[in-house]
Design a protein around this nucleic acid. Structure first.
Lengths: 289, 289
DNA sequence: ACCACCCTATAGATTTAGCTTATACCGAAG
DNA sequence: CTTCGGTATAAGCTAAATCTATAGGGTGGT
């Protein structure tokens, strides 16, 4: 049994004559005639009686019709879904990400991405960057976002790099500067990330290169926490200009020199082929980060 | 999208390699290879990545697989049902019949007929013979059984004719006879059908031809009622030897001469082609009546 | 009665899916 | 470095589905 035969049969049952069915299917009348003859032969069912030069469906045809329509609709649904998968409207996107990005920026971007893709299932799992990396190897996720550096890098990794900016409270004397350097921050109370963080290490190097005193008054795990401390007047700080942007309301951001690099990585599965959808979203992220 | 492509895809997804799938489908490996390549091209989905000379299904393939299986099962169900329709295991058999036959004989025969045909829907509607005839013209039934004669006969009518037998209570003097004639019943109390019935007319003719006195002590609408009256000792009677047989327990049946004909007709729809099932059952009935 | 019109069936030619066999290629394992 | 298990490509075949052209059957109007 072929799909084409069922299509011809359905159209013929609905519209009554072969000539009309042929028109609707944009084929010639003999094509319908022989296709139906084949269907009758293959199913062993007499579907129509030729009566007065016209066709009359048999009771068997009516019974068969119900099933034929059901099968056709299943096939048509399969076609539709193939298209949805192809255009990224159907699928699932399970993303593992570190805290700062998964709190605000990532969900906003995912929601935007999903807006034009109706059937999408979304999942966001928040873990620290090293756990994120480990989850990916167990194949549980379509995409992961981690901060660099990682203990062991992956082949399927795309790095996004930012230059951090200095953040000061509104009205702070340094808020007027075009660029801020360690010299400007000599002895100024400073909110930093933890000592183990690469940001900490880069800052320490920068201050020592300038011979300035780095007066660290607070250490935090996340930029977002640091933002809040700066906003509360603890001192000045440093922050990445994209991921942490949502937390910098009422703060002034200024370029910092020398460049303090903040790097995050998009990781795709290595064992298994990443889904088209994951690739698309990775591309979307790179454009919006 | 063709059914064959989905079959190949399903087998390949389940068994992992093209070589194995080809074996299971009893075709060559290149056949699978090109069929899958076509499916990928037509759906626009990359279903497998060729990795290390082996195939690895993509996430898209897994999503598509679910739908492909659904569609295939619908098509396979359609094939199965075509076969059931062809072998008469599926369908409906709505039969209109007159009272005597629909009380006992017809349901027994229908049950027997349906025993080997699992999916059958049965309907029995009981009406008097003339109503039965009229119901058939409105296309509501697959088969009708009516007593003859009818007001206007039909082309699509098969007549079954019986010679009625005389029924007497057990121990009645006439119970020993080989054949009973009107001469034997001269003045004997007799239970007959109603005056309008052809049986009544035939009996009246027979008695007058023999010059015997026909002593009708009761008239009934149905043979079954007459049987009960005879069994109760009202007199003797006449009955058809098949349809009314279930009602003649504890009665003795003897051939009657001259022949009293009892005729029933099987009517098939005229406007519309009768279903194969109706034809089969009509044939079955003719053999068992 | 006959012709026009509508419908279906058949014949012969063409295209293409799906199949075959033969063969090349590729990676892993001995 | 060869063998083995697997996949892809090429060339050729068959059958399904399509086309055009044409025949034939019914119905209704003139």
């Amino acid at each position: 049994m072929r799909i084409r035969q069922l299509e011809c049969f359905r159209t013929l049952m609905i519209h009554g004559t072969m000539t009309r069915a042929a028109e609707l299917l944009s084929i010639s009348q003999p094509a319908i005639s022989s296709t139906i003859a084949n269907l009758e032969h293959e199913t062993g069912l007499k579907l129509f009686v030729r009566k007065g030069g016209r066709l009359q469906p048999t009771p068997e045809a009516r019974l068969f019709f119900v099933e034929a329509v059901r099968a056709l609709e299943a096939v048509e649904k399969t076609n539709r879904i193939a298209k949805e998968i192809r255009t990224g409207k159907r699928g699932h996107l399970a993303i593992a990400a570190y805290a700062s990005i998964s709190i605000n920026l990532l969900p906003r971007l995912m929601a935007e991405f999903a807006k034009e893709r109706s059937g999408l299932e979304l999942k966001i799992i928040t873990r620290n960057s090293q756990s994120v990396r480990e989850l990916m190897t167990t194949q549980q996720f379509d995409l992961a976002i981690a901060e660099l550096p990682l203990d062991y890098p992956t082949s399927n990794m795309q790095v996004i790099s930012y230059e951090c900016q200095c953040m000061v409270p509104i009205g702070h004397p340094l808020a007027e500067r075009e660029v801020i350097t360690p010299a400007d921050l000599d002895g100024v109370p400073f909110v930093s990330l933890f000592k183990g963080d690469p940001i900490y290490q880069q800052l320490a190097l920068a201050f020592s290169a300038y011979g300035s005193a780095w007066n660290v008054v607070a250490e935090t795990e996340f930029f977002s926490t640091a933002c809040e401390l700066v906003r509360s007047g603890m001192g000045v700080g440093i922050v990445d200009p994209v991921v942490s942007l949502p937390f910098t309301r009422d703060l002034v951001l200024k370029p910092f020199s020398p460049a303090i690099h903040y790097q995050i990585a998009l990781l795709l599965p290595t064992q298994e082929e990443p889904s088209q959808l994951a690739r698309e979203f990775a591309h979307y992220l790179k454009q919006h980060l």
